[in-house]
Design a protein around this nucleic acid. Structure first.
Lengths: 147, 147
DNA sequence: CTCATTAATGAGAATGGTTCGCAAATGCAT
DNA sequence: ATGCATTTGCGAACCATTCTCATTAATGAG
């Protein structure tokens, strides 16, 4: 049981939610996920630990976690929501269009400009979603192999 | 029949697609839409003109238009794809979290930084999606009513 | 203009993610 | 321990989207 999972369950308790076995397991699976799984995938992982837990419960629990802000629901592609444990530091995503891999990044400069743009439009920026799509550059100057 | 619709159908023809009555109508509805409707909504508008056109056909036709690049499919919120006729000049979107309204904007500065960030990560930026969410600022200096 | 060819359509079924409703099971304060 | 409100599991329901397939229609050749 990771500490991140502990944080999730303790927040649950503070929110007046009951701590149940399914929630512990789902918290653990979500907390240790580093690959932005969608809910069906989380369900698969949860099922490996306890096959009795229903898909509904996974959806419900993920929704609860998301409402505490400790877990984020993104929607990169076709409909399904992809989940990640929220980190203190905000980041955006870059999708490798060849492999589908999700790379996290952060640019304070871009963040700053976003707030600025929003303000110019007469809005207070409350959230944003930035996803870049890119093709890996031919890496001629790589230094992981000898020449 | 707007000229934008004409552009759509002529592109269709050039792509070897047949020009049919349903496609003409759907092209017209999409071309004159300025509010990012989703497909079911486009279907509703199409049905007002010709109730015989099926939802399947609307989906198929929108997909064709999207493949020509003349129409864009965004996914701002829960699952459904929202459609807009593509303009020459790229823009991003700001969502008014109170009204749900979609405001279009453009920031060359942000665009430039995105390409830069991608390159630093070892990618050639091929596309991006930026959506800002904001709350309207209290407009103290409004001048639409007298004091 | 007529035909044959072949793509497009309509209607409905199928899919896949997500939510709902409800009876049965369970956490938790007492 | 016990009662009761919260959760769960299961299946049905939903919604957007895609697929199937028989029927219809657009297009190019003659």
């Amino acid at each position: 049981m990771s500490d991140a999972a502990d944080v999730l369950i303790s927040h649950c308790r503070q929110a007046g939610q009951r701590i149940t076995a399914p929630r512990r397991i789902i918290a653990d699976v979500v907390a240790r996920a580093d690959d932005h799984p969608d809910v069906p995938e989380i369900y698969r992982r949860v099922a490996e630990i306890d096959p009795g837990i229903s898909l509904s419960t996974v959806y419900r629990t993920v929704k609860i976690f998301a409402s505490t802000g400790l877990v984020e629901r993104h929607s990169f592609a076709g409909g399904r929501a992809r989940i990640e444990p929220a980190s203190e530091i905000h980041h955006d995503h870059l999708i490798d269009i060849e492999s589908g891999a999700v790379i996290e990044f952060r640019s304070d400069e871009i963040e700053r400009l976003q707030a600025l743009v929003a303000r110019e439009l007469g809005f207070e920026l409350t959230a944003h979603r930035l996803v870049l799509y890119g093709r890996p550059l031919a890496r001629k100057a790589r230094r992981t192999r000898k020449p």
